[in-house]
Amino acid sequence: MPTVSMKVNGVDVSGDVEARTLLVQFLRETLDMTGTHVGCDTSQCGACCVLMNGDSVKSCSVLAVQAEGAEITTIEGLANGDELHPMQDAFRQNHGLQCGFCTPGMVISAIDLVSKNPKPTEKEVREWLEGNLCRCTGYHNIVKAIQAGAQAMGG
């Protein structure tokens, strides 16, 4: 079995995995980091989004071995101790989550958006979320949260 090494939330990790192991399986099953979720099998729901070298990717569509040497940031790596990341806090303040299952992917995707577009318009946020499905909120408050989070992040 191949050995794979990467940095997850700033910590060097490695593990022996089958080549067919997905990055999300490596995170959830090998590293027991269950904050990243799986909601579909056709790469559409986005619940599994993580940052890979700074860009959001769907960890259900990346092989663990493809992430060799990469820097991965998951939802568990955003808060500073008890202090939420501004985007996390914006989701809380704006009621941008209900059941919470899509939330890790939404927050990660939002952070990627703001890193590329610090002041996204409502339309830009909605278009960016093409790859993130939420069944609870109707997106209204997610969009609000992301715009507020962008502002809090300094945009």
């Binding site: 980091m33 269950t34 904050g35 990243t36 998951t74 939802i75 568990e76 955003l78 808060a79 939420l84 996390q88 989701f91 809380r92 989550l97 919470g100 299952f101 939330t103 890790p104 927050v107």
Partner: peptide
């Protein structure tokens, strides 16, 4: 929300 937002659900 705190647990859901930090991956601790």
């Amino acid at each position: 929300d705190h647990r859901f937002l930090t991956g601790r659900g």
